[in-house]
Computed example of a mutant assay.
Amino acid sequence: MAMKTKKRIPLQKTIWCKIRYWQLLHDLTDDELAMYLNCSTRTLQNYDHDAKNLTLKTVDTFLCVNELTLEELMTA
């Protein structure tokens, strides 16, 4: 029996969408978010296009700076 392949959203994209949602909730500019992630605004645009280069270090930096857990971010 052939299983249907479901298209799924990669984990990096899911996390990136949650970070962008958090940014929206806290009314932050791209410059402020870039500061939290320790990257450039150009990198944010690259993540918007394709989040495959979003690293655990970047996510961890964001979580530490904002005193969040991954669970809190993902359930926001």
Rank of each mutant, 00 (worst) to 15 (best):
H49I: 05
I19P: 03
Y36V: 07
K18M: 04
N66F: 13
E67A: 14
D30N: 13
T41L: 03
L24W: 11
V59E: 02
L54S: 03
I19V: 15
A51L: 04
H49E: 08
L54H: 05
I19L: 04
I15G: 01
W16S: 02
Y47R: 02
K52P: 02
W22D: 07
E67S: 14
L63G: 00
S40T: 15
H49K: 13
D30H: 12
L28F: 09
N53E: 11
D30M: 09
T14A: 07
L24T: 14
V65K: 14
W22Y: 15
F62N: 00
A51G: 05
T14R: 10
T61K: 14
L63R: 00
L11M: 11
W16K: 01
L11A: 14
W16G: 00
W16C: 03
K13G: 03
D31P: 00
H26A: 10
L63F: 02
D27E: 13
E32N: 08
K52V: 10
L54G: 01
F62H: 03
E32S: 12
F62D: 00
R42K: 08
C17G: 12
I15T: 07
L25V: 02
T43F: 08
C17I: 09
Y21S: 03
A34W: 08
D60P: 03
H49W: 03
R20A: 07
I19F: 04
F62P: 00
D30C: 06
T41Q: 09
Y21T: 06
Y21F: 12
K13E: 13
C17K: 09
K18R: 07
Q23G: 03
I15H: 06
D60G: 02
T29A: 10
Y47G: 03
C17S: 14
Q45S: 15
L25H: 02
C17T: 09
Q45A: 15
A34Y: 07
Q23P: 05
K57D: 10
H26W: 06
Y36Q: 12
K57W: 01
I15A: 09
I15M: 09
L33H: 09
M35F: 14
L28S: 02
